[in-house]
Amino acid sequence: MEAEVLLKLHHLHLELSNGTALLEDVSLNVRRGDALGVVGESGSGKSLTAMSVMGLLPGLRASGSIRFEGRELLGLKDREWRRLRGAGMAMIFQDPMTAFLPVRSIGAQIDEQIRLHERVSRREARARTVALLGRMGVPDPEAAAKRYPHQLSGGLRQRAMIAMALSCGPALLIADEPTTALDVTVQAQILTLLCEIRDSGAGVMLITHDMGVVAQTCTHVAVVYSGLVVEQGPVAAVMARPLHPYTQALLEAIPPLDGPRPDALPTIPGRPSAPDARPEGCVFAPRCRFVRPDCAVRPALREVEEGRRVACVLYDA
């Protein structure tokens, strides 16, 4: 049952050149056929985590370990990174309008990625591009390949983006808020597509702020708060019974779509501390309703149940 671990982040720490830590301690795993949702609010470091896996953060100092298919990525030469990017792992972004180059056709941009990694002729690359677009549900893929990004709808653009990401058959697909810029009905289409990709055996890492999106597309979830993973586990278990007070508060803050309408939504008082002013102890302590004296020492992310890990003193044995 235990599938092969595709990506393993171990105590990933990321800091600015002036020593401010953006990511304090991120540890997580993605297995083949798994989709890991990385959830957090803006500034939590969820996108930074994704970018550091892709090695797209020049100028930041990373320590710890990023292992992809058993190979350590930190300290890799730029040339070797490049061979991985787009081939072994690929990424899709929030806004497919700005993520594509506006002045070249969609097809040309997908062809480019194929030809960057494989020695194929233009004609072969285009044939593959068209086939991919078709598989991603783009109607009339041959014509769509000749169009420019602004000529396609938001949903089709994101499908094209996914087609480009999958063009070299990556083992890992990282999706950074892939549906935030889309309408709900189109979002549902794209999420369905991501589920299919996951089922086809690739590992997916989905960065999002939306617990609902995670619940419906992911198998596992990691909740990030202020540069740390505070809770991790299988989606169903975490949604049904969140352990960390932050996860609980995050789920409660979503207005319900059925049942009685509450007079006031539960909220989290205050706001996350800035990277240069993080508390010594538990990062969530200043906003936590269960705060107690031993929160002054930062709790480690520990396994408390089968497959579930949480960083909170409430679950100390």
Binding site: S153, Q187, A188, Q216, T217
Partner: peptide
């Protein structure tokens, strides 16, 4: 139906764009 919710699986989405 298209609103992603923690408590149920994704129903088949609407086809096409607006």
């Amino acid at each position: 139906n298209a609103v992603p919710r923690p408590d149920r699986p994704l129903p088949p989405p609407l086809k096409g764009d607006v």
